[in-house]
């Protein structure tokens, strides 16, 4: 607008007409704009304002939620030099890794199987989707009982039926992250299966028939027809999965409290503890900003790789 105004009278006279055009555009869809007022207001208040405030506060010393003194990058230095930071970051990466290893192929396989099913498809979809409607904390507590150490744990009771000694589950720091990840995958599986299934059902069956006539086997059909068609959905769910799992809080909070000895502590849980256990809000928002930047970086890298792969 400012650029237009500097270009002499003729161009300057065009400015009101631009305003008029905008005005007309608003009036053309007046009810749409009215309907948008509340969502925009809520979006700004609930999403953008906290993000902007959070980033701003991360440069301040805080008293409660009230910024007191500008401290530059000190909060970030405090968070990054915490002796637990690198371990917690590595734990979080492990959560993401295991969620990809366990959580990505499984729904694809199940969706392919469901897509081939003739009878009982509805029932299976219902059963698979059921865990999605259970609150996350309830799921975590159910799995905590499954994983409980000693003969009273449900998995150990199962093992006892086969004469196997009770195993250590959540108290085993070597496997605690994959175990928590399994509970997450169990809950989220149904949603992913439904999305993959919807994509698979959009694939033209004539392609499969043509491939079959050309002598393509099952795996060849999967590789050349199915996977190219669902690759977009795989990309979408992978990015969503990385972003979602990177923020994991509730599951380790409910199942292990971050233990044993910090073995299941995630960045999200550390953030929660900073804010609600220790009342160190400046460190909490600083860690939030660091996590945000890490996720932006990860997503960027992923897209780069994906583009390279597609090229």
């Amino acid at each position: 607008m400012a650029k237009e105004m500097t270009r002499g009278g003729t161009r300057a006279a065009a400015a009101p007409s631009l305003w008029n055009r905008a005005n007309k555009a608003v009036h053309r869809s007046i009810y749409g704009w009215i309907l948008l007022i509340v969502p925009i207001f809520l979006f700004v208040m609930i999403v953008w304002l906290p993000i902007v405030k959070g980033i701003t506060y991360s440069f301040f010393e805080m008293k409660g939620f009230v910024p007191q003194k500008f401290v530059g990058l000190q909060n970030f230095v405090d968070v990054l030099t915490d002796t637990n930071f690198l371990r917690t970051l590595w734990n979080t990466v492990q959560y993401v890794f295991w969620s990809l290893v366990i959580g990505m192929p499984l729904p694809i396989l199940i969706a392919i199987m469901l897509n081939e099913m003739v009878h009982g498809k509805g029932l299976f979809k219902f059963v698979l989707y059921l865990p999605c409607i259970i609150p996350m904390i309830a799921v975590s507590l159910i799995w905590k009982m499954m994983y409980m150490d000693g003969p009273g744990g449900l998995l150990n009771m199962l093992l006892a039926c086969f004469g196997v000694e009770p195993a250590k589950w959540l108290s085993n720091s070597a496997i605690v992250i994959p175990l928590i990840t399994i509970s997450m995958v169990w809950q989220g599986l149904g949603g992913s299966v439904i999305l993959y299934l919807a994509t698979l059902q959009g694939v033209n069956h004539e392609l499969y028939e043509a491939a079959r006539i050309d002598g393509a086997g099952f795996f060849s059909r999967m590789w050349h027809i199915t996977f190219p068609h669902i690759s977009g959905m795989v990309l979408l769910l992978t990015v969503r999965n990385i972003i979602g799992v990177f923020q994991i809080v509730e599951q380790p909070l409910a199942m292990t409290g971050g233990g044993p000895n910090g073995a299941s502590m995630s960045l999200g849980l550390t953030n929660y503890f900073y804010a609600f256990k220790f009342g160190q809000f400046e460190k909490s928002v600083a860690l939030g900003v660091i996590s945000f930047l890490l996720m932006v970086g990860l997503t960027f890298v992923y897209y780069k790789f994906d583009k390279k792969f597609e090229d």
């Binding site: 720091s173 409290g257 233990g259 000895n261």
Partner: peptide, 14 residues
């Protein structure tokens, strides 16, 4: 307490 929690967890699980 949080620091000591971790010590307790370690000696009870390992």
């Amino acid at each position: 307490y949080a620091t000591l929690d971790k010590c307790i967890q370690e000696v009870l699980t390992n």
